[in-house]
């Protein structure tokens, strides 16, 4: 084999990690792709159709149209996070993360490979849920590129969250604590099902401290052209969080926290 330059080596290694990650979540599609399709269908039926028909308009739009972007975003967040946390923790638990640690792959490449897997699953699940939503309502997409950008950025952010969680996790219980006790409440309180303009002033102020609110609203703006907050601020916040979590993740990899003794 002719010796590749380190740049070539890392590019091929990135593709290998990505292929490995995509193969993993598609091999277990019944655990990764099917559940969000079923759960989100139930949300559309119960909250959108049955309860939504009694609610009337929200933010100037039909209630079903209002919650579709939020529900898509909720599935993207959960799946991007779940993909990386379970995949990286399994790699640690079964010790095949050592395949990467022993190899000349850079820490950046390892991180980007896992993020690539999380983003791919996030985008794919988002697409599946979007297609399912078409059975219930056809909503125009006001800013398609913004929709795509927000999905990719949000998937990246929560993939990073999943990675950090996996680095610190010591047992399987540890990878479900954050999704159950932090991610789910923040998502439900992040304006998926309602506009924060409905909240009393104190709670509205508190809701603005929830980062998921910004993602859901930026995404909703991409679809409907309406948002509770400024879209530029939302994108800026997501990028800021990504920068911080990426730096933290890279630091953890370099120090070998939870990986090297």
């Amino acid at each position: 084999m002719p010796t590749p330059s380190l740049r070539q080596l890392n590019w091929i290694a990135f593709q290998s990690i990505l292929v490995k990650e995509i193969t993993r979540f598609t091999r277990i599609w019944a655990q990764t792709l099917l559940p969000p399709a079923i759960t989100m269908t139930l949300y559309f039926v119960i909250f959108g159709k049955l309860i939504g028909s009694q609610i009337g308009d929200m933010g100037g739009h039909n209630y079903m149209a209002y919650i579709v972007p939020g529900i898509i975003m909720m599935s993207v967040i959960q799946n991007a996070y779940a993909n990386v946390v379970s995949s990286f923790f399994s790699a640690k638990f079964q010790r095949f993360v050592e395949e990467l640690l022993v190899s000349p792959v850079s820490n950046n490449t390892i991180l980007l490979g896992y993020l690539g897997g999380g983003v791919t699953r996030g985008v794919l699940v988002g697409l599946i849920v979007s297609l399912i939503s078409l059975f219930f309502i056809r909503i125009p997409i006001a800013h398609p590129w913004l929709v795509f950008l927000v999905v990719v950025l949000t998937s990246t952010l929560f993939s990073l969250g999943g990675f950090i969680n996996a680095v610190y996790a010591k047992k399987f219980d540890d990878i479900s604590i954050v999704p159950t006790f932090i991610l789910t409440p923040l998502t439900y309180l992040g304006g998926v099902f309602y506009s924060i303009s409905l909240l009393p002033e104190f709670w509205r102020g508190l809701a603005l401290a929830n980062p998921i609110l910004y993602m859901v609203n930026a995404f909703r703006y991409g679809f409907l052209g309406v948002s509770d907050i400024d879209v530029g601020v939302a994108i800026g916040m997501i990028l800021g969080f990504i920068a911080v979590l990426y730096a933290v993740s890279l630091h953890l990899l370099k120090r070998g926290i939870g990986l090297r003794s």
Binding site: L9, Q15, S16, I17, V19, K20, R24, A91, E98, S103
Partner: peptide
């Protein structure tokens, strides 16, 4: 043993080669 028990031997060795920069 430190490989993914759910992957096949072919997947394991091909991925490993990729980590060393060997094209697929």
């Amino acid at each position: 043993f430190n490989f993914s028990v759910f992957e096949t031997p072919l997947q394991i060795v091909v991925n490993q080669a990729g980590f060393y920069g060997m094209p697929r």
